[in-house]
Structures are given as structure tokens and as C-alpha cells.
């Protein structure tokens, strides 16, 4: 952490609101995008981002400088989004369509036309298709994959953010990707 950033955090911890606003400015976009990746809805992402910074403001005194501020703030974001997704899963009224009676994913429910990679890369709908497919993964798989490939976190950073081991992160990613392949069809690089 460079000394400027450290100084801003110290000032914010001491109650300097201007310093805290600087922290918001530095991280707001990333927090918003991360929340969107995990929730797939900009309005909800905006509400979560707001809650993240209010929580950070309230809990700044518990933040330990030896960890990075960004990791801390992304962890708050990820935890809030995971809670929202859990509630959504619990409240979902039509789970039968996507899951079998044992709660397992019904893998017969593929997209109607398995897309080819060239088409996917050119397709402006790609992101949306991926988002749709990602909703069929477990919350942890989706979170790990979003952090890794949309937010470009390292597996170490993801482990810190999600509060698990790096091996667990890799399992979530690997299993998630395997499931995505089944959902989207086997794409081939030519």
C-alpha cells in the first residue's frame, strides 16, 4: 500500500469525512460493477454499493491497516451480494423449472442452440447469455467466476474476499466452468 493511500485511510479513520469521500471516489465504480456482476441488476447493484459504503463508514474503526482497503471493501460487497442471492434462492417461486426434486441442477435444460465460440465473441448478446447461464451455478461458483474473469482478481484475492482457501476457490471455478460448458454446449476454438 502506498503512503498516500495509507494516509487517506488514517484520516478517514480519524473521522475526516473528506478523506472518506476520497475512498468512495476511488472504489465506487469497482464496487458497483462487482455488485452488478453478482446480482445482474443495476438498481440492486446501486443499493448494495450504497450499503457497502455506509457499512464501511460505520465499521472503519474495525478495519485493520495490514489488510488492503480494497480487499476489505470487496469482501463487504461480496458478502452482501451473497446474502441477497441466498434470499432470492429461498424466495424463488419457480425453482422447479431449474432444479430437479433433489435440488440438483437439471442439466437437460440447455440453451436451445449451443453457440459457437466465434459467434459468441462477436455477439453483443454474449455477456447477457453468460449472465443467464451463470445464474444456474451455485452462488459460490458464480461469485468465484465473476471475481476471477470479470473483475480479474487473483485466486489469492478471491480467497481473501470470500473467506475460504485458494483450493476451494479453484474448485468453485473449475466446477462452475464445467457446469457452464454443459449449459452453453461444448464450444470449440477453431
Amino acid at each position: 500500500m502506498n503512503s498516500d493511500a495509507e494516509q487517506i485511510i488514517l484520516e478517514a479513520k480519524a473521522g475526516d469525512k473528506r478523506a472518506f469521500n476520497m475512498l468512495v471516489t476511488q472504489h465506487q465504480k469497482r464496487v458497483l460493477y462487482l455488485a452488478y456482476d453478482l446480482l445482474g441488476d443495476w438498481d440492486e447493484a446501486k443499493d448494495v454499493a450504497q450499503e457497502v459504503f455506509v457499512k464501511a463508514y460505520q465499521k472503519l474503526d474495525t478495519f485493520e491497516e495490514r489488510s488492503r482497503f480494497s480487499t476489505w471493501i470487496y469482501r463487504i460487497t461480496t458478502n452482501l451480494c451473497i446474502d441477497i442471492q441466498r434470499k432470492r434462492k429461498r424466495n424463488r417461486t419457480e425453482p422447479i423449472e431449474k432444479s430437479g426434486p433433489d435440488g440438483k441442477l437439471n442439466l437437460n435444460q440447455k440453451l436451445s442452440e449451443p453457440p459457437k465460440i466465434e459467434a459468441l465473441l462477436e455477439n453483443t448478446q454474449l455477456r447477457r447469455q453468460l449472465e443467464e447461464a451463470l445464474t444456474q451455478l451455485s452462488i459460490n461458483q458464480k461469485t468465484a467466476i465473476s471475481l476471477r474473469y470479470f473483475q480479474e482478481f487473483s485466486t489469492t484475492e478471491i480467497a481473501e474476499t470470500m473467506g475460504c482457501s485458494e483450493n476451494t476457490v479453484r474448485i468453485h471455478i473449475f466446477r462452475g466452468i464445467k457446469k457452464l460448458k454443459t449449459i452453453l454446449g461444448n464450444i470449440q476454438i477453431s
Binding site: L126, R127, I145, Y149, I177, L184, I187
Partner: peptide, 8 residues
Amino acid sequence: MVQVLSQA
């Protein structure tokens, strides 16, 4: 699949 995700 990883390449597709990274390039989206």
C-alpha cells in the same frame, strides 16, 4: 470457456 468469460 475461460477465454469466452475473460473476453466478454
